[in-house]
């Protein structure tokens, strides 16, 4: 990747370079979010589903983890919705 300004320019990126840079930034943020979610899912669902670690991850534990992941995602979406609604309410109250 070469983000150095074009030679002889005024130090600004051209349109293509700017877009390329923003795509990189967005991809990195998406990656950070996915990692965060993955970490939370493992942490929360391990706590919910594996109370006594056995010699393998048995099928009831697997089922529990699958269910837990879906419910955690539901919760994420619900929180995002609730939070967004509140933001909009506060904004209209102030504006």
């Amino acid at each position: 990747m070469d983000f150095s300004p074009p030679p002889g320019g005024d130090g600004k990126l051209d349109r293509g370079q700017r877009e390329q840079l923003m795509q990189q930034v967005q991809a990195q943020m998406a990656m950070a979010n996915a990692q965060e979610l993955l970490q939370k899912l493992s942490e929360k669902c391990f706590a919910k589903c594996i109370s006594k670690p056995g010699t393998s991850l048995d099928s009831s534990e697997q089922k529990c983890i699958a269910m837990c992941m879906d419910r955690y995602m539901d919760t994420w979406n619900l929180v995002a919705k609730s939070y967004t609604q509140r933001l909009q309410k506060e904004k209209s109250r102030m504006g």
Binding site: L37, C64, M67
Partner: peptide
Amino acid sequence: IHDLTEKCWDTCMLGVPGQR
């Protein structure tokens, strides 16, 4: 949203997660 989800999951999700 990540932080709030964690807090509210810990507060509200009692017992084992079900079908919905």
